[in-house]
Amino acid sequence: MNRLEAELLGRKLKNPIIPASGTFGFGYEFSEYYDINILGSIALKGTTLMPRYGNPLPRIAECPAGMINAIGLQNPGAEQVISTELTKLKKVYNEPVIINIGGHSFNDYIETSKMFNDVDSIWAVELNISCPNVTGGGMAFGTDPKTIKKLTECVKKVLKKPLIVKLSPNVTCIQDMAIAAEEGGADCISLINTLVGMRIDLKTRKPIISVKSGGYSGPGVFPVAIRMIYETSRCVKIPVIGMGGITNAREVLEAMYAGASAVMIGTQNLVDPFACKKIIEDLPMVLDEFSIENISSVIRRNANA
């Protein structure tokens, strides 16, 4: 019996640990470091309809307890992701994965989602309506409940796979956003994306990041994430994937007690390429410490419990 087995959207996962989109590339590169088949699933790098270079450098600024990034959704475009990146990943990972989709317009999200309908190696779509690093779309969509509901409906209409809506923490009331996604037909919510932040270079007196602000992530956002996972999981009936500054197995358990059905590990992958492996290996010991037999027993079953 696998103590770490979890279920998400009707799918059995070896464990609830999923590398977060944007911190794990298209997955296959980490197979140079360890056997990535140990992972619960993988959320791939944000993918758009057309190829994107993203923002000029610098795109990275370090912060106390984390970092700011403003990559700007660099990716080779959906067509090449399907033909090249997923082919490479299939050779080293045996299960289907989660594609993360970004866009500037409703049409972008709809058309890109459709492209993955018949791709066997994708089992779910994560809709990134919370990226702070693109102009138009991205976070602009994810901070207005009406738009969230409408966009979710539009994508859900054309999509044949489970739909995860990834929410932004840069809002006054996260519950309104989560409810809007649920009303629009989302099968699951993932949160939190990054918090908008900025650093100034003392020598140049200007923002370090080329596009001035970017998304703050890392251990510093963990308490914000826990609060939002807690609030969200108690106002919607669909499952919540928790993420935001998780660095170790104890924090995984904390996120699950907050209400997460699975967790995503982000920034820690960049500091420690073996982060997910270590967390998966440490989880049984943490379960022992708190006398938990199986991790599935801590997953919140319904919103009213």
Binding site: G22, T23, F24, E29, I60, N69, I71, N269, L270, P273
Partner: peptide, 9 residues
């Protein structure tokens, strides 16, 4: 960000 190809920074 990472130094090993993961973040596109």
């Amino acid at each position: 960000g990472c130094g090993f190809g993961a973040c596109m920074g």
